[in-house]
Design a protein around this nucleic acid. Structure first.
Lengths: 121, 121
DNA sequence: TTAGATGCAAAGGGTTTGCAACGTC
DNA sequence: GACGTTGCAAACCCTTTGCATCTAA
């Protein structure tokens, strides 16, 4: 993965933002630095940065994906307005509320390479 | 939420399946019971069943959503082939592998209603 | 030099939606 | 009878992709 001006700026935008931007939000911020950057470039870089584990994707329950710093923390996501709240102090025993947010359920996902895919190539 | 033949069958398909079907997969199975059911009806019911917390949505990293029983368990998701493996015995301390699957990272999401949305209506 | 990256625009495709007819309560 | 639900098809819109050009290494 080469280092390009576009890729560096996109990574910097995500690393310095706490807004959990979607792809278009990243695009808008990137245009402030590179006015003629294309949305396709933003999408391609978001994908490659995520594959390289340099950023994270969040599915917030809406129809678009959102992007986040690669930093050890968890999320509360509102199922009504899709707000994402960072959690740095998760106490996982009997979480019924987090701060003043009502927790209805939780999801834990382990991500990785399955047994079959490890065998390939 | 009314009880309809379509909705009952869709719920039954998900409750009796361990395949983590996507919407089209649910549609195909539903057509075996109701040949003229429409894909729109499947989508609408998947959404309303999920809002009612009767089923769960899984984002597997591909471009489509997948649906799952509402039962207390967790998932391993392969980032290459998007296979989903049910986890019933998660030991959350230092998970580097789950069975023979290589775990690269994990995500914990609490879902619920945020403080602001609780005030509305 | 050359393989990967970009800009542009069009295509793709999963999901949503408008509407008339239907079914549930 | 009122209103939620369905079937159908079209629209939506987020995301991907083909291609010529550019650029990092």
């Amino acid at each position: 993965m080469r280092s390009t001006k576009q890729r560096n700026i996109i990574l910097d935008i995500i690393n310095s933002s706490y807004e959990h931007l979607d792809a278009y939000g990243v695009y808008e911020k990137a245009r402030e630095k590179i006015p003629n950057i294309s949305l396709g470039t933003v999408y391609r870089n978001l994908n490659s940065l995520e594959n390289a584990h340099l950023i994270n994707v969040i599915f917030d329950g809406s129809d678009k994906l959102r992007y986040d710093r690669n930093e050890n923390h968890q999320h509360f996501i509102c199922t009504k307005c899709h707000k994402i709240i960072d959690i740095y102090d998760l106490d996982f025993k009997n979480v019924k509320t987090y701060q003043n947010n009502l927790v209805m359920n939780y999801k834990i996902v382990l991500e990785g390479i399955c047994e079959e895919c490890q065998k390939e190539e």
